[in-house]
Design a protein around this nucleic acid. Structure first.
Lengths: 137, 137
DNA sequence: TATTGTTATACTCTATAACTATA
DNA sequence: TATAGTTATAGAGTATAACAATA
C-alpha cells in the first residue's frame, strides 16, 4: 500500500478506462458525453434555467448550447421559454429522452459491474462509499 | 447504494477535485502536471527513449517535447543521445529533479491524506485496493 | 527502408467577450 | 440596469502529418 501511485494519477487513468468503456455505448446511441450528462441531470429533475443545468454538471453555459440544440432537434428534451419570464428556458426530458437515457445507463451499469466483478464485496463497497462521499456536492 | 451516480461521473468529478488540490502545489514549484508526471515516471527508473516515456504516462510523444525542453533547461532531468544509437535520448532525473519531485510528492500525499482522513479505515483500504487494481497496467 | 526525435500544422475543446431579448 | 441566453472570437490543449538525423 505504501508504494502506490498518487491518487490523481490513478483517478486520471481510471477516468480514461471508463471513458473507453462508455464511448462505444454512447456512439451506438448517437449521444455525446455531454449530451448524456444533460439527460442524466434532467432525469433527476426538470431545470428552470440553462445556467443552472450547466453549473450542475460542471460545464460552461456556452458550450451546452449546441448540445441542447441537438437534443431538442432529436426530440429528446423539451426547452421552452417560461411564460412568466420569457428570458429563461424551462428544460425537461421527453418520453423519448427518458427512454434513451435509460437504455444508455443500463448498458453503462453493466459495463461497470464487469469492471467491479472481480473485487471482494467489502472492497467494492468501500470503493463506492468513499467515491460517493468524495464527490458529494 | 442503488441511487448512486454513474462511476464515470463520480470519477470525473473526483479528478477535478484532486487537480484543484494539486494545482497550487505544482504552481508553487513552477511545474506543470505533465512535467510532474515525467518526474514521477523517471523516479521509478531511467528511460531509454522519449517515446517509451510518453507511452508510459499516456501522453503523445510530440506534446512531451516542450515539457522535456523546460525540465532540461531547469536542470531537473538529464537527456543525452545514446552513444550506441544516437537517435535515442537517454533520460534520467538529476539530483535536483529528484529533490523537486520529492518535495511535490510529499505535499500531494499530505493533501490526499486530508481527503481520506474522514473515512473508516476499512473503506479507505477498500477504496485504495480497488483503485490500484483497476489501474494496474 | 525503418526508427527516433523534432517541427509545423490543423483540429478540438474550452473559455471570454460582445450581442439580443427580455425584465 | 441587470439577467438569460446566444453568437463570435480567441486561446489552450491535443493530435496529425511532414521533416531531419541516424541506423
Amino acid at each position: 500500500m505504501e508504494e502506490r501511485e498518487d491518487l490523481g494519477a490513478m483517478v486520471f487513468r481510471l477516468g480514461r478506462l471508463l471513458l473507453a468503456m462508455e464511448q462505444p455505448i454512447l456512439d451506438r446511441h448517437g449521444v455525446s458525453m455531454w449530451a448524456y450528462a444533460v439527460l442524466t441531470a434532467l432525469r433527476e429533475s426538470p431545470m428552470r434555467t440553462q445556467a443552472a443545468l450547466a453549473a450542475g454538471i460542471g460545464a460552461d453555459k456556452t458550450r451546452l448550447i449546441p448540445v441542447l440544440d441537438e437534443l431538442q432537434k432529436r426530440g429528446l428534451i423539451e426547452r421552452e421559454p417560461d411564460p412568466s419570464d420569457r428570458r429563461v428556458r424551462l428544460l425537461d426530458l421527453t418520453d423519448a429522452g427518458r427512454q434513451v437515457h435509460q437504455a444508455i445507463q443500463s448498458e453503462v451499469r453493466a459495463g461497470e459491474a464487469d469492471l467491479l466483478a472481480a473485487f471482494p464485496p467489502a472492497d467494492r463497497d468501500g470503493f463506492l462509499r468513499a467515491l460517493i462521499a468524495l464527490t458529494k456536492r
